[in-house]
Design a protein around this nucleic acid. Structure first.
Lengths: 234, 234
DNA sequence: TCCTAGTTACGTACAGCGTACGTAGTGCGC
DNA sequence: GCGCACTACGTACGCTGTACGTAACTAGGA
């Protein structure tokens, strides 16, 4: 009879404390905050059950009283930073509001570079995710469309932002614990790409390389992408 | 002096064999094929260096002669399945060609459900990725735009497909090694979502739930999303 | 032709991971 | 006040990636 439940559980459905026995020493918010801090400082790899427990000042296995599986810890983290979303009074211009939401999400992800890697539709039910989704729907009130369409718009936009920022951050995160720098890694990859292009097998890529459109403006590219997606909805 | 290089390396820049010493027992293609087979059968978790080596019939550490880091094994895998892309003669209608490419990518990801998780811009330099990118650029010849814009279009489209299919597959992959089924997990999450919505805190989500738009047609939603994005480019 | 240097092959070992399980101790509800 | 549900946590298992050392092998240079 001991042991973990053999049936799936949503951590949000599990009450934080049940009233019997010693008072829990921490809240979920405490735990999430510690995990987020560790991830911000040392990347997702720094978030291990042992490490989080040590930082909280308790034994490793005690953590399992609060967080049945590591995945739930991730869910707590996503929800915690989701709380950083600052909502606003919908302006009546849904396009502008969607832009604003996307920019905010991007800022959030740059503050917490591990976030894109944890983004999963599975985590879409956390309190702060629901709060954010409801807010976006409110912003979309002026758009004449079914809720189904609106939710698709939100999902598509979030997906694009996640992909976009994830790409921006991928190398940085990847090289965090490696003995060489992001610049070195990029240089090596670009050198290889150049050698391939020089082989003549990829004429259009070669042309793209020659195009020399000046320094890439990540900011502008992001805005451009957002507008394309938003415009697609009328 | 012994030990691995302290400088980044691209596996594709490293020759498959150098001519001295015993002949290698396997090719990269062999290794990639085994890893892909394991991942198809048991998910990404089944792809460990030990497991792959065992399947190849060699010692674990021998594998490191071919693949310096596990990450490179992933890169091999992505490239290997990228080879499954069947290219075609550009039709002259770039919209149709992009649709075709996206559908093919989706099919590829459904055949190899671990693929979305490994999709990273970092792997964009593998031979088959370059081949695919060049092909897409050829399809976009009729579109009047800079190569920079075209590459952005391709990236955006790939990102959307990855996000979309990744979302479709996330739960399935996640529950693969769990003691309960995808359906059970979904049921629990939806039950929780329902309880939250019933609380009245999310009126628009409640309305969305009530909307009852009939059974969700994933296929149609995917096509719809593609058209939206493609149409955004004119 | 032989020698040697660069490879391949692979066993051992280490640090770290998630977490199952067992055992104490604590305090609320009956 | 009794009992039970809960917290706390040490130990242990099987797994991971991979550093390192050693033995076998073979192509290139003398």
């Amino acid at each position: 009879m001991a042991g973990r439940a053999a049936v799936p559980e949503v951590i949000w459905a599990r009450p934080e404390r049940t009233g019997r026995g010693p008072k829990p020493a921490f809240t979920r918010a405490d735990i999430a905050a510690v995990a987020v801090r560790l991830a911000d400082a040392g990347g997702l790899d720094a978030v291990s059950m042992r490490h989080v427990a040590a930082e909280l000042g308790c034994g490793t296995m005690s953590l399992y009283n609060y967080v049945p599986r590591k995945e739930d810890l991730h869910e707590l983290m996503v929800d915690a930073v989701g709380g950083e979303h600052e909502l606003w009074e919908p302006s009546g211009d849904w396009r502008a509001d969607m832009l604003r939401a996307a920019r905010q999400t991007r800022a959030l992800m740059r503050r917490h570079p591990w976030l894109p890697a944890l983004m999963s539709p599975v985590y879409g039910f956390s309190p702060n995710s629901l709060r954010y989704l409801e807010h976006c729907l409110a912003c979309l009130d002026p758009l004449e469309a079914t809720y189904g369409t609106k939710i698709q718009l939100i999902a598509l936009l979030n997906g694009c932002v996640t992909t976009y920022v994830g790409n921006e951050l991928a190398t940085a995160e990847r090289t965090r614990s490696l003995p060489w720098s992001e610049e070195q890694e990029n240089a090596v990859r670009i050198a290889y790409l150049g050698s391939q292009i020089a082989s003549g097998a990829y004429p259009r890529m070669a042309a793209a390389f020659m195009e020399d459109s000046g320094p890439i403006d990540l900011e502008a590219a992001f805005e451009w992408m957002l507008r394309k997606v938003i415009d697609a909805f009328g």
